[in-house]
Simulated assay, not measured.
Amino acid sequence: MLRPAVRSAIVMIAVAAAGLTMGEALVTDAGRIALLVLGLAAIGCVPWRYRYPWAFVLGSILVGNVSLIATYLPLVGVFVIATRRRTTETVLVLVLSVAAAAANIYRGIPDLQEMLLLLGGAAALLTSSAVGGLLAGNRRAMVDDLRERLARAEAEQVERDEQARAAERRRIAGEMHDRLGHRLSLLSVHAGALVLRTDLSAETVRESAQVLRDTTHRAMEDLRTIVQVLHEPPCPDAVEPEDTEDLTAVEQLVSEARAAGADVSLRSTALLLVSPPGRPLAGVAYRVVREGLTNAARHSPGAAVEIVLDGRPGRDLTVTVHSGCTGEGPAPQGAGTGLVGLRERVETLTGGTLAHGPLPDGYRLRAVLPWTKEKDA
């Protein structure tokens, strides 16, 4: 779309070029030169036609009837008023323009037949300009309305995303709160046993101390997570997620999907390791797979789904869910809050990243989760 300055320049050149055909540039007397300058000055006001519409249209009617080079300037004024989409104003300006043209033609053309012919042509041009202005005004109003709706939809989407993130943070905080309470209760039990039992062997004491050390380490990890996400108190109505200890829950999830008739394949190197990932990686990986299967069942029912879990300690655990196409057209668009909450969980609990998007042969959901011994101790 052309910029306003460019459009104004084109209009000015078109009006001046059309006016030159009336013979204004051929005169040499002072009066005609003054009218030529007046007409050029009126044409120079075109860039301000929308800022001062009534001043512009009245000036264009007056100048257009005395300066030949500005003869076609009233067409621009009628167009500008018509874009305001006010019927009374448009009709009034159109009548004034036709009346001014009739007076000018009557003054310069004595022959009645020729006068009526020129008047009919002028009225047709002015009416066409008014109709074009109305159409342009309607189009501009539609574009403005669409832009407003788009801005409102984007704002609502941002608000929904923020609400989804906040809800996920509350669920994570509630989950971590309960887990921390469990850790502390274990600490209390083992510490109480050491205090009350005086007949324990040195080996038993060392084993109990090791349990206390491991439990304390996990409690500190949970406490750090709570500090990161606990912006608001836990939501009492939120449904608490499963406490997944390892990746066997992923195998169970795939088995359930197959039992329901889904075409799901699972390839995993992480499941074959002696020390597979524990919490929180296992829980996050489980949620990624569950979200991928849910979206595949919702948007591409019957399509093949491939799940890949790859990684080892000291590197990243990569969880990929690739669903194929069914060939039944584009998938329906959802609210996307599930992916927003999943991203919040991936980034908050593991420091990982989540990516998703369409591919030529389907849709891919991919999470990269840092896998360190300290995080899964």
Rank of each mutant, 00 (worst) to 15 (best):
A16L: 09
I226E: 00
E328I: 13
R213P: 01
G327F: 07
A151D: 10
R160N: 12
R86N: 14
I69C: 06
P47R: 07
V346W: 09
A99S: 11
L365V: 14
C325E: 13
G324K: 03
A209M: 09
V189E: 05
W48D: 01
V131F: 11
L96N: 07
D29S: 06
A355M: 09
R312L: 04
G302C: 09
F79T: 08
D161K: 07
G292I: 13
G19F: 06
T372I: 01
L196D: 12
R84A: 12
Y52F: 14
A42H: 04
A355P: 03
R206S: 14
L146I: 07
G181M: 02
L35M: 06
G31P: 00
E162R: 11
A377W: 01
E89P: 06
E203S: 15
H190G: 02
L125P: 15
A42R: 01
L2V: 08
P277T: 10
I172K: 06
L230D: 02
F56S: 09
R3P: 04
L134E: 04
L339I: 15
C235Q: 04
R343I: 10
M115G: 15
A167H: 04
H177K: 09
P358T: 15
E114D: 08
L266T: 00
A70L: 05
E240R: 13
R287E: 14
E156Q: 14
A296D: 13
R213M: 03
L230T: 02
D310N: 00
V37R: 00
R84N: 03
C325K: 13
Q333K: 14
D316N: 11
P236Q: 04
D246S: 14
A296Y: 11
T71I: 10
A25V: 11
V78R: 09
H190E: 06
V319C: 00
A16K: 03
E256C: 03
G44F: 05
P277L: 01
A270W: 00
P236K: 05
E154S: 12
R85P: 14
A122L: 07
W54N: 13
T216W: 04
R267M: 01
R279Q: 13
G352C: 06
I13P: 00
E159A: 15
V340P: 06
P233Y: 02
L281P: 11
G327K: 10
Q252F: 07
L293Y: 08
T198C: 07
A18M: 12
A141V: 13
R139V: 06
A367S: 08
G23M: 01
L200C: 08
M220K: 09
P313A: 03
V46W: 00
G132I: 02
R169M: 01
A262W: 04
E148W: 12
V46N: 01
V264I: 12
R197S: 12
L365H: 10
T326A: 05
T318D: 01
P370S: 08
G23A: 02
P370T: 03
V93Q: 07
L354V: 15
G357V: 11
S275P: 05
